[in-house]
């Protein structure tokens, strides 16, 4: 018989919360009906704290912490929407846009893009940072799917879903700094990687239009980020959602 973890209490935005001691701040924030923007986080996958959008302020703690990878502690007093946090979040989204080549007007994910949604949520209507216009490429070597690196924000959802749920580990992060990119196999064309089972989970969970089905044209992508959590639940708890 498993022993339930002890319960801890604290405050979020002035509201009292009680949660299991092993819960993350993000879980507590969402359970309290509050909302912080996220991009790399996806229920069902291991959190990595890569996008820095869920940063929160904790009283008495000198730095901001990403809510998705921070566990709650007794007496924690958390703020999710201080002016400082809002400034940083907007800045982070501006950097996402400046870093890649994000052109919503002819993107497959236009209208169903989480980067777009987050930009709206944090009130980002332009970037103060110079656009980098990086020279990236499109990998259309797979028979069913394509990867447009211009639209990739390196959230690593595809890497994690392929490793943790499908178990194929086709994807990983290669190189570093501004040259950093998602790689398939030995940085080969996707279609040449024998490990790929063509299951399409990476396409389902991609928050932008970076991974898409070839038949999808502009604004025609229908992502299914919820599938990661459904599959994880079915696998670990033998509970099937039957959507």
């Amino acid at each position: 018989m498993s022993v339930d973890p002890p319960v801890v209490h604290g405050h979020i935005n002035g509201q009292v919360f009680s949660a299991a001691a092993d819960a993350t701040l993000l879980q507590v924030i969402r359970a309290a009906g509050l909302q912080v923007p996220t991009l790399c986080h996806l229920d069902g996958l291991t959190p990595v704290g890569a996008c820095r959008l869920c940063l929160v302020a904790i009283e008495g703690h000198p730095k901001l912490e990403p809510a998705c990878v921070t566990t709650v502690a007794e007496g924690m007093v958390v703020h999710t929407h201080t002016p400082e946090l809002e400034t940083y979040r907007r800045m982070a989204v501006e950097l996402f846009f400046a870093e890649g080549n994000h052109v919503c007007a002819f993107c497959v994910a236009n209208g169903s893009c989480e980067l777009q949604d987050v930009a709206v949520e944090v009130g980002m209507d332009h970037s103060r940072f110079p656009y980098q216009y990086p020279q990236r490429h499109v990998d259309a070597s797979h028979t069913q799917f394509s990867l447009d690196h211009h639209r990739c924000i390196l959230c690593t959802r595809c890497v994690r879903v392929c490793d943790e749920i499908e178990g194929a580990h086709v994807w990983d992060v290669g190189y570093r700094g501004s040259a950093c990119s998602i790689i398939a196999g030995l940085d080969q064309p996707w279609g040449e990687v024998a490990a790929c089972t063509s299951c399409g989970k990476c396409v389902d969970v991609c928050p932008t239009g970076a991974l898409f089905r070839k038949e999808d044209g502009t604004a025609e992508k229908h992502p299914h980020p919820e599938r990661a959590a459904q599959l994880a639940e079915a696998r670990h708890e033998h509970r099937w959602t039957n959507p």
Binding site: H169, L186, D187
Partner: peptide
Amino acid sequence: PPEELQRLARAMARPLSEVMGVASF
């Protein structure tokens, strides 16, 4: 060489992309 990376991945039973991720980093 890519063939050696492939051999190494096989010998260590690791995914190719992980080996390449480390090698390219």
